[in-house]
Design a binder for these strands. Structure first.
Lengths: 233, 233
DNA sequence: CAGTGGTCTAGACCACTGA
DNA sequence: CAGTGGTCTAGACCACTGA
């Protein structure tokens, strides 16, 4: 079997969504229309759409039709995932906007968190991550230069800081604190949200090669991001 | 439609697995056997088994047959803590206010989450937990009566529902989703917070003895609670 | 009412496995 | 070879929605 017909239809639908041609909430062609267009039986179209619905891409209502699902991203509480992977795995487009990528003198708070000397310099990167052009994460990251000396040479539009760190300083341990807060003016502007939109904030410290590699503050609009984990005690 | 036929077959297979009658690695009856036994068409059996395979319960090999999936170990990274312990461990006073503790007819959403029949009754407990007399958690919990029949006999001022469940139905697995939302009027009143105070909401399903034991929605004022985890990848 | 998705049937052809 | 699962067809009946 070269390619199953239901798989071809699934790929077509996912492509429309990830390319942004079909936006969340859009009513997509009915089973009958797709049946005619692809010259297959309705069961084949039905399987394609049913699977996409169970995978979270579509939302179906009997009597009404099939809609592109609203963004309800789910991330993992347990694993540290690269946001680029996470988004592309959902079949969506990821894009990063680099706000800063600089070397700067460390503040006392950050020096304590990174366990570096108070008079040293650290790398700081501030990026906004977009899912299908909707901002979903503001990443404010401080990196210990000793563990990733070439960080600022990276083109963050092509590789996220997190992915680069995975590569050069394999993760040994992580600690994260999750909380719910209103956004400050800076986050509001970059995430394009209102002053009363609650945000899910993850503060994460990561260890590599015996030292603290990075401290990141990740701010997500509450309506566009949630964390999920499944585990055994 | 009372119950779709493919759903009846799925439930039957899941029950064999969760009851331990079919162990991991076991070859289960073929599509043809199930077709004859349930007097349905092969497509219907196929859908049931295909969905169970995509949900991770089964493993199928063309030409050989369908097997019960091996247990995929999930590393224990996040713990589920009893809030009473958590608060007293910080040296603070814990107190619980019981708002409801009733048996009520299940809604379709909750029936699906607890995997019980749509017409059954479930236990529901709504409590507010206080840390030094400040409300820190609104707990809205639905419990499968089959797994904790005596739940409503407990005095929740002396033992939290969560602690009781640990005791009578040892936790096998858990799944949680964490998000940030504004509170509804009910939560606002019980937690004594304003309409713009973001809340950290944890939705948790727990499994015990092969079934879903409980579904809990835990709402915390963002300013009074946060989640923390430390783990290795 | 016409149109939607939800489900099911009774066949069919196929690739694959092990005997 | 007989038996397995993978896929597909061309119908069917149904519950549901909005006009």
């Amino acid at each position: 079997m070269a390619q199953a017909r239901f798989a071809i239809i699934k790929r077509y639908v996912k492509r429309q969504i990830s390319a942004g041609r079909w936006l969340p909430g859009k009513l997509i062609p009915s089973e009958n229309e797709l049946t005619r267009h692809y010259r297959v039986s309705r069961m084949t179209v039905n399987r394609a759409l049913r699977e996409l619905a169970s995978e979270g891409f579509l939302h179906r209502v009997q009597g009404l039709g099939t809609y592109v699902a609203e963004l309800t991203p789910v991330s993992s509480l347990l694993k540290i995932r690269d946001i680029h992977e996470e988004i592309t795995e959902r079949g969506h487009r990821h894009r990063a906007m680099v706000k800063f990528a600089v070397e700067e003198p460390v503040t006392p708070d950050i020096a304590a968190l990174l366990e570096v000397k108070p008079e040293s310099a650290v790398f700081r990167t501030v990026l906004v991550h977009y899912e299908n052009d909707v901002p979903v994460q503001l990443e404010d990251r401080y990196v210990n230069p000793a563990l990733a000396p070439d960080l600022l040479k990276i083109d963050f539009k092509r590789e996220t800081p997190s992915h680069y760190l995975f590569r050069v300083a394999p993760l040994a341990e992580a600690e994260q604190v999750v909380e719910s807060r209103l956004p400050d003016a800076f986050a509001r502007r970059l995430l394009r949200i209102g002053p009363h939109e609650p945000c899910l904030i993850v503060r994460r410290r990561t260890w590599a090669r015996g030292g603290v590699a990075a401290y990141a503050v990740l701010t997500h609009p509450g309506s566009r991001y949630r964390l999920m984990g499944r585990f055994k005690p």
